[in-house]
Simulated assay, not measured.
Amino acid sequence: MAALEIVRIPALSDNYIWLVHDPESAETMVVDPAQAEPVLAEADRRGWPITAIWNTHWHPDHTGGNAGIKAATGCEVIAPAGEAARIPTADRLVGEGDTVSLGSHVASVMDVPAHTAGHIAYHFAADGIVFVGDTLFAMGCGRLFEGTAEQMFVNMQRLSQLPPETRVYCAHEYTQSNGRYAKVAEPDNAAITERMAEVDRARAAGEATVPTTIAAELATNPFMRAASVEILAQRRAAKDVFSG
Rank of each mutant, 00 (worst) to 15 (best):
M110A: 10
D111W: 05
D111C: 09
D111Y: 06
V112N: 11
V112C: 13
P113T: 10
P113D: 11
P113A: 11
P113N: 12
A114M: 02
A114P: 08
H115D: 11
H115M: 08
H115V: 00
T116I: 06
A117W: 01
A117I: 03
A117D: 07
G118L: 08
G118H: 09
H119F: 04
H119W: 05
H119K: 12
I120P: 02
A121Q: 10
Y122M: 05
Y122I: 02
Y122F: 14
Y122N: 00
Y122R: 03
Y122V: 01
H123C: 11
H123N: 09
H123A: 13
H123T: 01
F124T: 00
F124L: 04
F124Q: 01
A125W: 00
A125D: 13
A125T: 12
A126Q: 14
A126S: 14
A126N: 14
D127F: 01
D127H: 03
G128D: 03
G128K: 01
G128S: 03
G128I: 08
I129K: 04
V130G: 05
V130I: 15
F131L: 08
F131S: 08
F131T: 07
F131M: 09
V132S: 11
V132E: 06
G133C: 10
G133K: 06
G133I: 11
G133M: 07
T135F: 04
T135E: 03
T135W: 01
T135N: 05
F137T: 06
F137Y: 14
A138K: 12
A138E: 12
A138Y: 12
A138F: 12
A138T: 13
M139E: 11
M139H: 09
M139Y: 05
G140E: 09
G140C: 07
G140A: 07
G140D: 09
C141A: 15
C141D: 13
G142E: 08
G142S: 05
G142I: 06
G142F: 07
R143G: 12
R143V: 08
R143S: 14
R143Q: 13
L144D: 04
L144W: 03
L144K: 03
F145R: 14
F145N: 15
E146T: 01
E146K: 07
E146F: 02
G147S: 08
G147A: 06
G147K: 08
T148F: 07
T148P: 10
A149H: 06
A149R: 06
E150A: 15
E150C: 00
E150H: 11
Q151P: 06
Q151V: 04
Q151F: 00
Q151W: 02
Q151D: 10
M152A: 10
F153D: 12
F153W: 15
V154H: 05
V154F: 00
V154C: 02
V154Q: 13
N155Q: 07
N155T: 05
N155F: 10
N155M: 07
M156L: 14
M156N: 03
M156K: 00
M156V: 09
Q157E: 15
Q157W: 02
Q157C: 10
Q157M: 12
R158F: 02
L159D: 00
L159E: 00
S160H: 02
S160Q: 11
S160M: 09
Q161I: 00
Q161G: 00
Q161A: 12
Q161L: 04
Q161Y: 00
L162E: 03
L162K: 02
L162T: 09
